[in-house]
């Protein structure tokens, strides 16, 4: 029972670069490698099978792939307009990684998203992408710069801070939900007596691992898209 109630990240090995600086081989890194490996193998299989694809789908595999890609592309084109729908390629990768990472808890891995070191870089890429899209599409008459001086020029430092606080709120939301689910599930597995732990943890695991995980992976992507749409000119 003692081991079940330790929610910290287990470090298995340390690779020392210098005496002060090391790389930890820990739970998060191993889960990330496993999930990344599964996704890469899936992508390679899809790439090999794509040669046999017909204009009218015949196999089940082609139907699944087409439904996933088309559904996500239409969804991205609905949130962002057709002009910026090319970002769907990036967001599909993020979405697949986050979904697999969030539901990996039911396979006995520690979810990588229950570590702030995983969620913050992903949210930071969103903020960098926001700035890139703003500079690329909104720089013609200097709207991108003028946005920072609204409503008066005194607000410029606050606007810069608010840009970067988006990354914190985005990553902390995902991290908090996944870590909260991990702690609740750990308490239930560790503290329930045996006669209560027959069916109840399974039902709770469906909620905390699958429903919350899929919902927050989806919301991460949707909020990233909305943040990017705030920075680019709307066409209508």
């Amino acid at each position: 029972m003692d081991n079940n109630l330790d929610f910290n990240i287990q470090t298995y090995h340390r690779i020392y670069l210098t005496d002060e600086l090391w790389i930890s081989i820990n739970d998060t890194l191993i889960s990330t490698w496993i999930i990344g490996g599964i996704l890469i193998i899936f992508a390679i299989i899809a790439r090999i099978k794509i040669k046999n694809f017909k204009p009218v789908p015949e196999t089940r595999f082609q139907n699944i792939i087409e439904a996933m890609v088309e559904g996500f592309d239409n969804f991205v084109a609905g949130v962002m307009t057709r002009k910026y729908a090319f970002l769907g390629n990036w967001f599909f990768g993020v979405f697949m990684f986050l979904v697999f990472a969030n539901i990996s808890g039911i396979f006995g891995l520690r979810p990588p998203t229950a570590d702030f070191a995983t969620t913050y870089p992903i949210a930071l890429t969103t903020v960098i992408l926001m700035q890139y899209m703003g500079i690329r599409y909104n720089m013609k008459k200097g709207e991108y710069v003028r946005e920072f001086f609204r409503p008066v020029f005194l607000f410029a430092p606050l606007n810069v801070i608010s840009e970067f606080s988006r990354s914190i709120s985005l990553s902390l939301r995902l991290f908090g939900n996944m870590a909260g689910g991990l702690i609740v599930m750990g308490l239930i597995y560790g503290l329930f007596p045996w006669f209560l732990s027959i069916g109840i943890p399974g039902g709770l695991s469906i909620y905390f691992d699958i429903i919350v995980g899929a919902l927050h992976a989806f919301m991460f992507v949707v909020l990233s898209m909305y943040f990017i749409m705030m920075k680019v000119p709307q066409e209508d």
Partner: peptide
Amino acid sequence: VVAETGGV
């Protein structure tokens, strides 16, 4: 989800 941020 946005309202949940404060609790998180």
